[in-house]
Write a protein that binds this DNA or RNA. Sequence first.
DNA 1: CGTCTCCTTGAAGGCGATCAAGTTCAGTGG
DNA 2: CCACTGAACTTGATCGCCTTCAAGGAGACG
Lengths: 225, 225
Amino acid sequence: MLSEICLPLGMARHDVAKLDELIKERIRIPKGSALFHLGDKAEAVFGIRSGSLKTQLEDAGGQVQITGFLLPGEIIGMDGLLENRQVSHAIALEDSEVCVIRIDEMDQLSQHIPVLHQQLRRLMSKEINRSHQLVMSLGSLRSEQRLAAFLINLSQRLATLGYSSSEFVLRMSREEIGNYLGLTLETVSRLFSRFAREGVLHIQQRQVHIVDMPTLRTLAGTDCG
Amino acid sequence: MLSEICLPLGMARHDVAKLDELIKERIRIPKGSALFHLGDKAEAVFGIRSGSLKTQLEDAGGQVQITGFLLPGEIIGMDGLLENRQVSHAIALEDSEVCVIRIDEMDQLSQHIPVLHQQLRRLMSKEINRSHQLVMSLGSLRSEQRLAAFLINLSQRLATLGYSSSEFVLRMSREEIGNYLGLTLETVSRLFSRFAREGVLHIQQRQVHIVDMPTLRTLAGTDCG
DNA sequence: CGTCTCCTTGAAGGCGATCAAGTTCAGTGG
DNA sequence: CCACTGAACTTGATCGCCTTCAAGGAGACG
């Protein structure tokens, strides 16, 4: 059960039992505090059990760029495995809980469970793909398309978790959405207002209700030619 | 020697010998042709031995986004490991040669060379970081800063390969640079002209000579506060 | 009830896109 | 050798999207 949240992978059942040993350690992160900071030693990756987090880069000048919003079942911290140093900050958007997957322990365990490496590899590949999708969004979509695509993506991931795909609460601020999408908070706010005015969705603060998903997909501009 | 190009990792010498077995297969890719296309079966990743390639995503509407320019020593195709299907196109910018690293063979070999998994993991983490840097560039830099940062990055990677960091030939067109940086080819051209006018660099077609690296770093806006 | 944070909305301006000619250069064939 | 051709690049003029600046509104919490 834990392992299905932390490494939802499709492994043999008896392997999953061994895996449970690996990921028995958990950490609670209160809203607004950090799971790790840039520069921290990175000896593990973290599977999100509950809540949600953001990861953000910070350059020498203090400029921040959010690179992801992570939901339960997703893995955080894989970008730190290069030099065993975290290169980003991971901050909880709400009270959250993660399980700790120590890399050295995983390496030992995977001598008995060879597929384990494949699974982590797939998760890292997924992270690469996720980031490439964001690049595509930032590089070639206009503001309206970016926000629409963002909402659709969020909707789908929430649906996978068993939540409603049409009604949900944004855990992040307009400013955070804007930063993530390469827009200003004002632009995000205006777009929400416009989408609501056009009857595509209802929005009240952070409560979102997608009314017309087909039109939203059209706005995203990625469902046809 | 081959392995140092294909997996430049810092492994024990006797391990490297075994690794040579793994990566004995090579492929030559003529300029303009593809190493792989979107949808191809992905059973391997590829280490670039010589030349250079670009990777590009393509959405349902045919919209293209270049996600990377790859140089010798770098690995291509790691984004296809999620579903064993390529999710991008890899196209040679010049006549190039890659070595093939079959994933299943690598898994077998790494039972004898445990560090091998770590190395691939580090390379994948590096790819995640690379993509995140691009997100940062697209999300929070202005056109001038993006192109400056792009040139500095290219310069550093060429220096690592033993080439001059101040004089080199761009293997990609203005349009490709623009696509990669989320700009139009006209904007890229104008920026090159402006940089040259301001004495930061000389440019003649694709031949670049960086004259004033400190100023270029200032333009990139990432070297100080 | 005041204060603070987050959000909304308006007005003005700038940066990069778009449209439109020219220019350079490598390759081709007369 | 040189004109022809087409692709890649440069440069200019105009336009529009998004940012910036500014002010006001909505909740949350002491």
